[in-house]
Simulated scan of single mutants.
Amino acid sequence: MATLAQPVGPFALGTFSVPDAEPFPGLLSKGRVLDLSAALAWAPSGMRAVLERWEEALPVLLVLADEDALDWRPLEGLRVHAPVEPRQIFQSGANYRQHVIDLEVAHRSPDDPRTVEEARAEVAAVMDRRAAEDLPYVFIGLPSTIAGPYDDVVLPSWAEQPDWELELAAVVSRPAYRVPVEEALEYVAGYTIANDLTDRATVFRRDMKAIGTDWLRCKNAPGFTPLGPWLVPAASIADPGDLRVTLKLNGETMQDESTKDMLFGIARLVSYISQTSRLLPGDLVLTGSPAGNGIHWGRLLRDGDVMEGSITGLGMQRTRCLAEGSTA
């Protein structure tokens, strides 16, 4: 399956392994992989170590990608892991206009007096105000949710409404704190694909509505963030605000939207997060999911489902769902 996921640009980065060996950071170019733990002078132990020296590493990686007389390995036969292990995951919610409208309609109370059209119009007005006031909505996820791009994901027995949320993820290249919007993209090493799985049934606390959302419960089960396959350098992506985000469930297209529909682009999200928190090399900024989630279609994830998620230039991930306790 990895051969179907070639990225755009002269090279991409990933994390790979062979049977019975530790994963290594790798350079992917022309369908072949170079072990960076051996090729780079400082012998990075993982992709985060590469990112911590990103400005120094980038020109070297460009040269290596064009060198044929190196110890390249064929991509086929290598296991592909999540490209990076982040220390922090920042997740943007309610960042796609049509997605928020769909969720509002799906979660309307049975006694809501508004018509569908009235509900949509009210939510649209709220989003316009948020955009004008420069107020993204960001929460925090756990690194333990990260899974490889081709790994199976176990649906916990308590998850009544597991759902998909394919997202563009930015990968941070250097520490960022109180960064202005105009400089924010300078702190982005590149982009990858994330599927931010969510149990819709536990998004809101039933025991005390005033508490609001419960992101720990609904989003942070092990493996709930399939990531990758590749980290594609920012220079290879002409415009992250104009990429196609597509998710297929068992071959049927469920999400198919442009990142143009985002309320807040990468620069605004990175800058906003940095006003409160210090972003670190390898951290992820998930940018929200477009319309077409399972709650919209009335079709949630179940045992045996296969999701294929792709974003323009970033390759494709493939995730099979297994009910807890089932056998592969």
Rank of each mutant, 00 (worst) to 15 (best):
residue 66 D to M: 13
residue 263 L to T: 03
residue 301 L to C: 04
residue 189 A to N: 01
residue 202 T to E: 02
residue 103 L to S: 11
residue 89 I to M: 12
residue 304 G to E: 10
residue 229 P to W: 05
residue 150 Y to F: 15
residue 122 E to L: 15
residue 49 A to D: 15
residue 103 L to R: 04
residue 328 A to E: 14
residue 218 C to W: 03
residue 99 H to E: 07
residue 239 D to R: 09
residue 152 D to A: 13
residue 139 F to Q: 01
residue 176 A to L: 07
residue 233 P to G: 12
residue 52 E to R: 11
residue 128 D to I: 01
residue 143 P to K: 06
residue 144 S to T: 13
residue 17 S to P: 02
residue 256 D to P: 05
residue 87 R to G: 15
residue 57 A to H: 08
residue 184 A to F: 05
residue 18 V to R: 13
residue 275 Q to Y: 06
residue 92 S to A: 15
residue 229 P to I: 05
residue 61 L to A: 06
residue 145 T to I: 12
residue 12 A to M: 06
residue 267 A to N: 01
residue 22 E to T: 12
residue 246 T to P: 01
residue 14 G to Q: 04
residue 143 P to L: 09
residue 27 L to S: 08
residue 105 V to D: 07
residue 215 W to Q: 03
residue 180 P to R: 10
residue 105 V to T: 09
residue 134 D to P: 00
residue 247 L to S: 02
residue 195 N to L: 09
residue 314 L to I: 10
residue 254 M to R: 15
residue 137 Y to M: 14
residue 279 L to Y: 07
residue 94 A to P: 00
residue 46 G to E: 14
residue 169 A to S: 13
residue 32 R to E: 12
residue 275 Q to M: 13
residue 223 G to H: 01
residue 217 R to G: 05
residue 20 D to K: 11
residue 206 R to N: 02
residue 117 E to M: 11
residue 125 A to E: 14
residue 271 S to R: 08
residue 9 G to F: 04
residue 286 L to A: 06
residue 91 Q to I: 11
residue 37 S to V: 04
residue 320 R to A: 10
residue 210 A to I: 14
residue 224 F to H: 05
residue 46 G to N: 15
residue 311 I to V: 15
residue 121 A to C: 06
residue 43 A to L: 08
residue 152 D to C: 11
residue 19 P to H: 05
residue 323 A to P: 00
residue 326 S to P: 02
residue 256 D to Y: 03
residue 161 Q to G: 00
residue 22 E to G: 04
residue 323 A to E: 13
residue 134 D to Q: 14
residue 177 Y to C: 10
residue 216 L to G: 02
residue 41 A to K: 13
residue 213 T to D: 02
residue 2 A to Y: 00
residue 251 G to A: 08
residue 125 A to V: 08
residue 255 Q to S: 03
residue 320 R to V: 07
residue 42 W to R: 13
residue 317 Q to L: 15
residue 26 G to P: 05
residue 110 P to D: 04
residue 139 F to H: 10
residue 311 I to L: 12
residue 44 P to D: 08
residue 270 V to F: 07
residue 317 Q to C: 07
residue 167 E to A: 12
residue 318 R to C: 11
residue 252 E to W: 01
residue 269 L to E: 03
residue 226 P to S: 07
residue 276 T to K: 14
residue 82 A to Q: 04
residue 235 A to F: 10
residue 296 H to E: 14
residue 90 F to H: 12
residue 288 G to H: 04
residue 39 A to M: 08
residue 48 R to F: 04
residue 288 G to A: 11
residue 305 D to E: 07
residue 110 P to N: 09
residue 267 A to S: 09
residue 98 Q to R: 15
residue 134 D to H: 14
residue 313 G to K: 06
residue 30 K to I: 00
residue 276 T to W: 10
residue 202 T to M: 05
residue 29 S to F: 11
residue 12 A to R: 01
residue 180 P to D: 09
residue 294 G to M: 04
residue 246 T to W: 00
residue 61 L to N: 02
residue 231 L to W: 00
